[in-house]
């Protein structure tokens, strides 16, 4: 623990605009999502009407369903692949040059700007289409796109936990007569599980956070919520969009809080 330092009040005053910049817009959206005025931004009283209307908006419900399916399916695939990747990279005596190459490949999605990532996806899918004509942009393409960047983040989280756990506990397990399988079941997996859950939550959060990659690969039929909001924005502001945006923010808050709970590690 680093020692705490008193800071100058000026620093605090300088830090305040940051929070305003981050939260003022979000708060405005939340406030206007419960404003009963249909047109305009004048406050006319509290209502949950826009939230109720969401439930009858077929396009909105469809997009919400797509967003959830996309998030859950891609997270499930990425969690499995990312965890295997982390296990395979962290605990084996890879020769240095190979280890470095693998690291670069695994880190690539983390450092690639999302627009270039999306461009690569478009190219990947047009390659895929030339091999298999039935492949059209849509849900499958979006899932593939999301898994591709999620894998890296899951691997990153799980791997850093593996490093944190260190090799000694595994040796202790071996020393105490554990077979490979028993050791994995009783030591490795329980110690790793919080990191795997955290990795999965991060993957889901990132899927929910993504717009650019979905936008490039969605195709005409499968809308996600961000795509829907983006195209609705063209037609101007609407209270229903306020409402769905607020719900997305609330979901994000829940995910972030959950994430923090699982990324803490207690060392014995």
């Amino acid at each position: 623990m680093s020692e705490r330092r008193k800071i100058h009040p000026v620093v605090t005053m300088l830090a305040l605009p940051s929070l305003l910049l981050l939260y003022l817009p979000l708060v405005a959206v939340a406030v206007y999502s419960v404003n009963s005025a249909r047109i305009g931004l004048v406050w006319e009283g509290f209502t949950l009407r826009w939230y109720r209307e969401l439930l009858h908006n077929e396009a909105m419900l469809d997009a919400a369903r797509n967003t959830m399916i996309l998030g859950l399916v891609s997270t499930a695939i990425a969690t499995v692949l990312g965890t295997l990747l982390a296990l395979g990279l962290a605990r084996f005596p890879w020769p240095k040059p190979i280890a470095r190459t693998l690291d670069v490949i695994v880190d690539l999605p983390v450092v690639t700007p999302d627009i270039i990532f999306a461009a690569a996806m478009v190219i990947a899918f047009s390659m895929l289409r030339s091999l298999w004509a039935g492949f059209v942009p849509g849900m499958l393409a979006m899932v593939i796109g999301h898994v591709t960047f999620q894998i890296s983040f899951v691997a990153l989280v799980v791997r850093s936990r593996l490093v944190l756990i260190g090799p000694t506990l595994m040796e202790a397990g071996r020393d105490l007569y554990a077979s490979s399988f028993y050791l994995f079941r009783k030591v490795t997996l329980p110690l790793l599980l919080p990191a795997i859950v955290a990795g999965a939550m991060l993957a889901f959060t990132l899927s929910l956070d993504d717009f650019v990659i979905s936008f490039f690969t969605a195709g005409p039929k499968s809308n996600t919520l961000p795509i829907l909001i983006y195209s609705a924005q063209r037609r101007g502001l609407s209270p229903q969009i306020h409402a769905i945006s607020t719900l997305i923010v609330i979901l994000t808050v829940a995910l972030v809080l959950g994430l923090e709970r699982f990324t803490r590690y207690r060392k014995a």
Partner: peptide
């Protein structure tokens, strides 16, 4: 073990 390596 040196650091005891108790399972946390």
């Amino acid at each position: 073990f040196q650091s005891y390596a108790l399972f946390p």
